[in-house]
Design a protein around this nucleic acid. Sequence first.
DNA 1: CTAAACTTTCAATACTTTTTGAAAGTATCC
DNA 2: GGATACTTTCAAAAAGTATTGAAAGTTTAG
Lengths: 167, 167
Amino acid sequence: MKYTEAKEELIQAWGNLGYSWGLNKTMAQIHALLMVSPRSLSTEEIMQELSISRGNANMNIRALLDWGIISRILIPGERKEYFKSEKDIWALARQVAKERRKRELEPILKVLREVNDVQSDGSDEAKELKRVVKDLKNFAEKSDGLLETFIKSEESWFWNVVLKIMK
Amino acid sequence: MKYTEAKEELIQAWGNLGYSWGLNKTMAQIHALLMVSPRSLSTEEIMQELSISRGNANMNIRALLDWGIISRILIPGERKEYFKSEKDIWALARQVAKERRKRELEPILKVLREVNDVQSDGSDEAKELKRVVKDLKNFAEKSDGLLETFIKSEESWFWNVVLKIMK
DNA sequence: CTAAACTTTCAATACTTTTTGAAAGTATCC
DNA sequence: GGATACTTTCAAAAAGTATTGAAAGTTTAG
């Protein structure tokens, strides 16, 4: 397989994976591009490589900065901004986990804690609801704890544990 | 908080969580409704409760059946079909993990294995690409293994390990 | 200060996904 | 068989999301 072909396939594939991690397609592609690039790239170059508009590039670069998975590089003497991505995939996964926890898990935990106070009127429906809320809350809290552990973990430490699990 | 209010909030919240798990909003809401319902419901009842059309209800019920997270119930003497959901949340999570693994992780693993054969032409770009592919492949394979372990796990067993990790 | 080099915004547009509802299909009953 | 009670399909409409590009904004240099 040729280099450019491989690069395009990878950007495409990583784009899909990123999408399933909760980024959008362009975000994930920009990220992939920065991943495979040995030097940091300017907005202009990103637009070019991915054939996207300035606005689109700008918005998604900002979103990536916001997620904390790429960073701005200022090159002395240059006015343009350059960007590079986090290249350690575990660090990236931890960062994504952190953001998703904030965006997705926290809101549902809040609702579950509220709904937990529902007064049962003794009906089957209310009893079932109470049971489900209890289970969900328990699940969500445990997931939250696990995520937190993962987010704070050192790669090597995490690895050792995972290997132990999978043995 | 009142029962109906709590129920609606929960369906809403679960709808959002399900969405972030890769189900669509209606799918997740139907699932939530079945979760909190002490008895199985017919298509008609689901349409009613969620104010959705017959077509929509039908399509999403089929998708949920397809994911294997709800099941069809036939009540003797009745012609209608009823549906009930898996109520064990861990079993549900395992099922979702299984489907997503098939739909998302497997395709990227396939691409990574292909791209892995790229011939380096000695350029920095090609070297970087090779490095990234190697890392990603490693990561994806390890995630795949971990997911597999989770999917096949018994709840209690998994729990013990998780608790150990989090201690 | 003005021009140049950039970055950001945003209304319009294009694209994707979801939802609707009526029509077609299927199974069961008498 | 025909009527009834359902389920499924699917083209059209609506809703949601992403993308464009030109205009406005900002920063730096001279």
